[in-house]
Design a protein around this nucleic acid. Structure first.
Lengths: 176, 176
DNA sequence: CCTGAAACCTCCGATTA
DNA sequence: TAATCGGAGGTTTCAGG
């Protein structure tokens, strides 16, 4: 087996730091994942094959997890969005909550520090479907209670940004 | 209409319901946004040009908002994630919070029903950067207080799913 | 990392059901 | 209205340097 090409994968360190080229490529791809390698290369100052090689490396390293379509929840039949705080009894049990990923309604699931154990982001077709989902939640062992925050308006929803060197925006103080 | 508010509520168009072809195409694109039209067509049972035409239509209708790269927060230098509940004084003022989108740290911003006004999803390089961000938050007029939920583990994080006809997964009932 | 080239894909117009 | 076919031009992904 050829070892020359295995450098990145066999690296002892978790990940080599991204350089400026990588960051520019990632920034382009976060904006539009269907850009051609030539277009990314133009923005980054590289040839298309060089970009292609870097994208493969970024994928292999895990920094680039994938490229996904972003859908409009309302227009694909899921206009109802809520954040659900779940209080659970024990942490051994929480492993079972991983089964929640079998519900396509559940988009995110994080364990958190604070006055709740787990935060879910759940998108359903209706309030009724949300109610059904919540009833399924209580079937899980150790689930003590839930508190739901129904989303009224979404003002911003975007993927992880690949910052360049980032200056803090100055939030302007209103003259009043 | 200014650009900010246009982003929130641009939903109007003679939108026809999605058919089975559209849903299959969207499902493919949510899995991998860089599939060729030929590959999508193979999964959907259409020719490449037909798929291309439908993707253009789905884009125009807004059901398909875009294609984005999904990055690993930790590996692009933002290992610190939190959900921030913001209590605000008035709703007229909340329009001003839209400026928060200038912070690349802010990934989501929703107004919600419940015991808080706004939920933010914020990803930063460190606890210190989060503190800095929160201090900027309090500069906004009308911000009364915040409550942060620091994410300990992320078990699931994925885009809006384009369901086919969906059967509810059976969560196994424990014997009681 | 670059250039070059073969295979593949995109995307147009024309045609057809 | 929406699908398919054909083909010109652009893209991907190899080489080799």
């Amino acid at each position: 087996m050829n070892k020359e090409t295995e450098d990145v994968q066999r690296n002892e360190r978790p990940t080599r730091a991204l350089d400026a080229f990588d960051r520019k490529i990632l920034r382009s791809l976060v904006e539009d994942a269907r850009l051609s390698y030539a277009e990314m290369g133009e923005a980054a100052g590289l040839s298309a094959p060089a970009v292609h090689e870097r994208v493969k490396r970024l994928r292999a390293s895990g920094a680039l997890k994938g490229m996904q379509a972003t859908l409009d929840g309302a227009q694909v039949g899921k206009p109802f969005l809520a954040f659900v705080h779940v209080d659970a009894d024990g942490w051994g049990k929480s492993q079972r909550m991983i089964r929640l990923k079998e519900f396509p309604e559940v988009e995110e699931m994080h364990s958190v520090a604070g006055d709740t154990c787990v935060i879910l982001k759940v998108r359903t077709a209706s309030a009724h479907a949300m109610e059904q989902f919540l009833s399924q939640l209580y079937v899980l062992p150790g689930v003590r209670g839930t508190k739901s925050y129904v989303v009224l308006s979404t003002y911003l929803e975007r993927p992880v940004q690949a910052d360049v060197t980032h200056d803090w925006p100055q939030v302007p103080l209103p003259p009043e």
